[in-house]
Design a protein around this nucleic acid. Structure first.
Length: 531
RNA sequence: GGCCCCUUCAUCUAAUGGUUAGGAUACGGCCCUUUCAAGGCCGCGAUACGGGUUCGAAUCCCGUAGGGGUCACCA
């Protein structure tokens, strides 16, 4: 049996909650949950210039939305807090002083101007080693004192070993070998007294009892630094497991311009959290029996860190789209009703956010481009419909449920409800007579069909929906045949009259949901329009 | 460019040295059908390349190529 793992995710509150944070959270939490350990959230807010005020709350909400709530964190009381680095400053200062005292770090008075110039020269010379040249590493005690006395500001840099190799184990890759001489003396403490990520991470992971650092591959280059930092403090290093990076379609690291990265985007587009979570677990992991749709609990039954596939997976929105549709269809109608109502409320009063994107800002990838355009239109439709829909729903709570079975197998995202929902709440259609002329249906035939359908509806008993459906279906077929038409073309104008569109949920069912009066009204409206 | 990582269908992936290289998405076709879907069936489609090791390699080793990450007082 494995020992309980204490793991963490450590995002910085610099913007929208990132899909990569969710991805890392999922695998970290899975390790904690399969070993009886804990998954912590630590906020890495040591960069004051990039700090975004409500970002932290967003991160927490997004994780909760995905049901990946941490066991400990700023919002969940835990034994090793605070879980916000800005509240742990003395610990970092103390750690830096310890290294300073032991001669494992040094004060560096180089200005950012000198550093910039240095970098420029190195680049111009095509120098192999680009980075800090270690100038202040050789400063004598007196020189340091003099500079301090003169009020020169300084950073604290770590003395990296300069000879030999630095070998570090990666859980997936085995031993990773780095040349010490190529490493640089990283900054541990900035001029403003805040630690850099490197120092804070080591201090906190140690203090918080972190056993496994499961993080993205992009951290591998700083692995030797982190390892040496642990060594300098005399602490046992955690297990490092570098997960692959989520990728854009062109295989580059997932980025805003090429792929939605904000978890808020997925929520706003109407993806279900459990579907997104499921999809994310498919990135680098697969179930033994080829199962692709599974709950978190099922995932845990098979989860093993060593089963993770390390090749960088491309985030395929199209597959998520399919998976989300599967989840929507698997929902109980009452549950889907609930989600839909919540979703519509979420969009309410937000029309302005969903204005069309100018051509040049649209993503270039075809599927995403189309989806994003439609998504904005749909969001606007629902946002506008929301007030009257909610009023109608609150007046008559039984309104929504019968609609669900008609629309759910046509949806892949909650947002796609916008394509089918409006007709149930409004009969103000913008059709023209031309819209009634369709394939294999002339204007005259359309008029006749509408009139015929009016009679059919009139004589149906809507109080017995099943019988009414059967009867309307039967008589429609008979009437169509009598008119020498196929059923499809015969129903075309009727569909336009009832739904205002050539594409809609099944007609008879829709009419039954609308009720006899409304159905007749709509038929009359259409007949009047064509007169 | 230096360093490091990665490499099975277009995409996500399976295959503990022996499989007709399997599944899913997407795509194409057929069926179902009241439009659109959903669903069912069928099809298309991969071990990057070159050397080894081995009776036998997608699998182990070496090289090449390609892709990616990273080179901040950001994380």
């Amino acid at each position: 049996m494995t020992n309980p793992a204490r793991v963490r995710v450590a995002p910085s509150p610099t913007g929208d909650p990132h899909v990569g944070t969710a991805y890392m959270s999922l695998f970290n939490k899975a390790l904690a949950d399969t070993t009886g350990g804990q998954f912590l959230l630590r906020i890495e807010d040591t960069d004051r210039s990039r700090y975004v005020a409500d970002s932290e709350q967003q991160i927490f909400d997004a994780l909760a939305w995905l049901d990946l709530t941490p066991h400990e964190g700023p919002h969940v009381e835990g034994p090793v807090g605070p879980y916000r680095q800005s509240e742990r400053l003395p610990k970092y200062k103390e750690a830096a002083e310890q290294l300073l005292k032991e001669g494992k770090a040094y004060k560096c008075f180089c200005t950012s101007e000198r550093l910039a110039t240095l970098r420029k020269i190195q680049q111009a010379e095509k120098s192999k080693h680009i980075g800090y040249d270690g100038l202040c590493r050789g400063l004598s005690e007196d020189e340091v004192k003099a500079k301090e006395a003169a009020g020169e500001s300084f950073v604290v840099r770590f003395k990296m070993p300069r000879e030999g190799d630095i070998q570090v184990e990666d859980f997936f890759r085995g031993t990773l070998k780095f040349t010490a001489a190529e490493q640089q003396d990283a900054v541990l403490l900035k001029t403003d007294g805040f630690p850099t990520y490197h120092l804070a991470m080591a201090v906190d992971d140690h203090a918080m009892g972190i056993t496994h650092v499961i993080r993205a591959e992009e951290w591998i280059p700083s692995l030797p630094l982190h390892f040496e930092l642990y060594r300098a403090f005399g602490w046992e290093a955690p297990v490092f497991a570098h997960m692959p990076l989520l990728r854009n379609k062109d295989k580059s690291k997932i980025s805003k311009r090429k792929n939605p990265t904000s978890l808020l985007w997925y929520r706003d587009a109407g993806f279900l959290p459990e579907a997104l979570r499921n999809f994310l677990s498919l990135m680098g992991f697969s179930m033994a029996d080829d199962q692709e749709i599974f709950s978190y609990e099922e995932f845990l039954k098979q989860f093993k860190l060593e089963k993770v596939n390390i090749g960088g997976p491309i985030f395929d929105l199209q597959k998520l789209h399919w998976l989300n549709g599967e989840y929507i269809r698997a929902l109980e109608p009452t549950e889907l009703e609930k989600r839909l109502v919540e979703y519509v409320k979420l969009l309410m009063h937000r029309e302005k956010e969903f204005a069309d994107l100018p051509e040049e800002e649209l993503p270039t990838e075809q599927f995403l481009r189309d989806f994003e355009q439609k998504r904005r239109t749909r969001s606007r439709v629902l946002a506008q419909l929301a007030p009257q829909m909610m009023t109608a729903y609150e007046t008559n709570p039984k309104l929504m449920l019968p609609i669900i079975p008609l629309i759910r197998e046509r949806m892949h995202t909650l947002g796609e409800a916008a394509d089918y929902l409006p007709m149930f709440f409004s009969d103000e259609f913008s059709y023209t007579p031309d819209d009634f002329v369709q394939k294999k249906c002339t204007l005259e035939q359309a008029k006749t069909a509408l009139g015929a359908m009016r009679e059919i509806v009139e004589s149906a008993d809507f109080n017995d929906p099943e019988a009414a459906h059967a009867q309307m279906d039967e008589t429609s077929r008979a009437k169509a045949e009598e008119l020498g038409m196929k059923l499809g073309p015969f129903l075309g104008p009727v569909r336009m009259a009832i739904t205002g569109s050539k594409v809609s949920p099944p007609l008879m069912e829709s009419m039954l949901v609308l009720g006899k009066d409304e159905t007749l009204k709509r038929l009359d409206n259409a007949i009047a329009k064509l007169a």
